[in-house]
């Protein structure tokens, strides 16, 4: 029998054209983004260490969360479908207080997402690094800064364990082993009582391959809190 190509070709075309059209969802396009803020000042955290949860109620299910982590500068962003979401922080995460409703329920931030939206998260940190000045002199990074004790209520306030100046080759600067090339610290007990005019300096080690800049920021470790709070990052060229 002779094979009739003019019959087969349209059939193949039909198969190719018909598949994969309506059986897939479009990928989500709405971005929910924002930053951790205290009265407009950004709160720095450690990369990949401070998680947040976004719940979408409904659909007969509860409990499952979209989980993400904050960037070092305290920003976050997730790509999701439009809908109603509730943003919250897991218990004991982050160097700040989060409002508790009851012993087992935490306050949530309701977000009705229609297209991309910026939602900043206003929180109350235990401490803030203020008036930070980072400079390079004589092969050293010198930091001068004040610390503001934000939470002073005796029941909630916590002491400073250590204050650390970290420097790194890249923008990822924290206490994690690969996130700093050098650091200098001062114990909380050695700080001046008014927490003003604190100074730290650290020698810049040899960097391979050579680069003429480092990134630096100051971190405050608070007694009994897992996550450190960081000052804004600064690029220092020398």
């Amino acid at each position: 029998m002779k094979i009739k190509f003019f019959h087969i070709a349209p059939a193949v075309l039909l198969i190719l054209a018909a598949a994969c059209k309506k059986d897939n969802y479009d990928a989500p396009t709405s971005t929910l983004r924002g930053a951790l803020l205290y009265k407009g000042d950004s709160i720095g955290v450690e990369y990949n260490q401070v998680p947040f949860n976004v719940f979408q109620p409904g659909y007969g299910k509860s409990g499952g969360a979209i989980t993400g982590t904050f960037a070092p500068d305290g920003t976050y962003s997730i790509l999701v479908f439009d809908g109603n979401y509730q943003f919250t922080m897991p218990k004991n995460q982050g160097p700040f207080l989060w409002k508790e409703l009851t012993a087992s329920a935490r306050d949530t931030l309701k977000v009705g997402l229609q297209g991309s939206q910026t939602v900043n998260i206003e929180v109350t940190p235990y401490y803030m690094v203020r008036n930070q000045q980072l400079t390079v002199s004589g092969g050293k990074v010198v930091a001068a800064f004040d610390i503001e004790k934000v939470i002073t209520d005796a029941a909630l306030a916590k002491n400073i364990q250590t204050v650390v100046l970290y420097i790194n080759k890249t923008k990822f600067v924290s206490g994690a082993s690969n996130d700093n090339i050098a650091s200098a610290s001062v114990a909380g007990t050695a700080l001046p009582a008014d927490l003003k005019n604190i100074s730290l300096n650290v020698t810049i080690p040899a960097i391979s391959p050579t680069q003429n800049y480092v990134f630096a920021r100051v971190g405050v470790r608070i007694t009994g809190v897992e996550d450190m709070i960081f000052s804004p990052l600064k690029k220092l060229t020398f």
């Binding site: 299910k61 409990g63 499952g64 897991p90 218990k91 004991n92």
Partner: peptide, 27 residues
Amino acid sequence: FQLGNYYSQITDAVLGANPKIIRQPNQ
């Protein structure tokens, strides 16, 4: 080892299917 590692995460599938299960601390 983060404090949230002390008790392994209960999967969202379990949490979603049973609202009486509460989440682990620090997670």
